[in-house]
């Protein structure tokens, strides 16, 4: 579904990604772990099409197409969803209105009829149960005055409604207490199917107790230095990222 080859990207002239390779197949959950500044969020941002990031080399093939050729909204309509680390507030625009506009934009792109208000609300109510979200949040402006936990749940609600093929969770666990973490993780797990894939970007192993990854990749200094199964996450938790940094030395990697 997703194939990243030798991806290089920079921010304001500074190279952050220095040759990332990653293959994600339908039905899989991949975790990308790494220390601060290793390029995790940059990778998520590049996949979603954030302009801040300039791709200097490599390619990203998504469902057989060059993802980097698509605009951010085309990527979204093609099923790429980014759950933001810091969800954005849009004052005066109700959550429902925003969600309906998004869903109908995506449906229109896919040649489906737009949902009317009744069908839309029925869908949203069903999906809200996934993330145990309070109904009143629907009528509030997008993310404005939401608690940290509410914002993250709102991201997963949007993901549930838009039903993406590739979900990218950027540090979704940051700022969540243990209960919220469980609720958010449950939501993600329930959305899992053989048709879609999820890339979980995280700093801590903690989230991976709830969302069990098929693969864990360690990103250090813009490269994936080690890949493994979920046990790799525990190993990292125990030994810290310094251990991974040593792997980064190319000579050692080959040895």
């Amino acid at each position: 579904m997703l194939e990243i080859r030798n991806l290089h990207a920079r921010v304001e002239g500074k190279e952050i990604l220095k040759g990332v390779d990653l293959t994600v197949n339908a039905g899989e959950i991949h975790a990308i772990m790494g220390p601060n500044g290793s390029g995790k969020s940059t990778l998520a941002g590049v996949l979603a099409g954030r302009e801040l990031y300039e791709v200097t080399d490599g390619e990203v093939i998504y469902k057989g197409r060059n993802l980097l050729d698509l605009s951010p909204e085309e990527r979204a309509c093609e099923g790429v969803f980014l759950a933001f680390q810091y969800p954005i507030e849009i004052p005066g625009v109700s959550n429902t209105y925003f969600l309906k506009a998004a869903l109908n934009a995506v449906r229109k792109y896919r040649g489906l009829a737009e949902l009317d208000a009744v069908d839309f609300l029925a869908l949203v109510k069903e999906k809200m149960q996934l993330v145990e979200m309070k109904h009143e949040l629907l009528n509030r402006p997008v993310n404005e005055g939401f608690s940290g936990g509410e914002k993250k749940r709102n991201e997963i609600l949007q993901m549930a409604v838009l039903n993406p093929t590739l979900g990218i969770l950027d540090e979704t666990d940051s700022g969540l207490d243990i209960d919220a973490l469980r609720i958010v993780a449950n939501g993600v797990n329930k959305l899992r199917s053989t048709e879609n894939a999820t890339v979980v970007v995280t700093h801590y192993q903690r989230l991976l107790n709830y969302i069990i990854p098929d693969f864990v990749h360690v990103l250090v200094d813009g490269r994936i230095v080690k890949s493994g199964d979920k046990d790799l996450a525990f190993h990292l938790e125990e030994h810290g990222y310094d251990w991974a940094r040593e792997l980064h030395d190319p000579a050692e990697q080959e040895a």
Binding site: S71, P72, E73, C77, I90, A102, V106, Y109
Partner: peptide, 16 residues
């Protein structure tokens, strides 16, 4: 631009 990108990422065009 982050507000616009957020909307874009949900499938909404820049104009909308």
């Amino acid at each position: 631009e982050d507000q616009i990108f957020y909307c874009n990422q949900r499938g909404i065009s820049t104009e909308d």
